[in-house]
Simulated scan of single mutants.
Amino acid sequence: MSEANLTVFLVDDDEDIRSSLSRALTKRGFHIENFASAEEFLDTYNGEKSGCLLLDYGMPRMNGLELQQHMISKGYSLPIIFITGHGGIPESVQAMKAGAIDFLEKPFRQKTLVDCINAAFETALATQEHEKKTKDLRIKFERLTDREKEIAQLMVSNSSSTSSKDIGRILNISPRTVDHHRARILDKMNINSVTELVDLSIRANLFSK
Rank of each mutant, 00 (worst) to 15 (best):
R109W: 11
T7H: 05
L21Y: 01
L104E: 14
E91R: 05
A24L: 02
K74D: 08
S73P: 07
S37G: 07
L10W: 04
G88M: 02
E66G: 10
P79L: 03
H70S: 11
A24S: 02
L53N: 07
G51F: 01
L10E: 07
K74L: 11
K106W: 12
N63F: 12
H86T: 02
K27L: 07
K74P: 07
Q68N: 14
R23V: 09
Q94P: 05
Q69C: 14
K106S: 13
I32Y: 06
I81Y: 00
D12Y: 08
M71E: 12
E105P: 08
E91S: 06
F108W: 09
G58P: 04
E105W: 10
P107C: 03
K111I: 15
P107T: 06
D102S: 07
R18P: 05
E40G: 14
E91F: 05
E105G: 12
R61C: 15
N46A: 12
D43E: 14
S20V: 06
F82M: 09
V8C: 02
F108Q: 10
I72G: 10
I17Y: 01
H86W: 00
Q69R: 11
G75K: 01
N34P: 08
G87P: 01
L65C: 07
M59I: 10
H86R: 01
F82R: 06
H31E: 06
P90I: 03
L53T: 11
A38S: 15
A36I: 14
S19W: 00
N34F: 08
R61G: 14
T84V: 02
I89R: 01
N46G: 12
L78G: 05
G64Y: 10
G85L: 00
F108M: 11
T84L: 02
H70P: 08
L21A: 01
F108P: 09
H70E: 15
E33P: 08
K106A: 13
L78C: 06
R28E: 13
M62T: 15
I80K: 01
T26R: 05
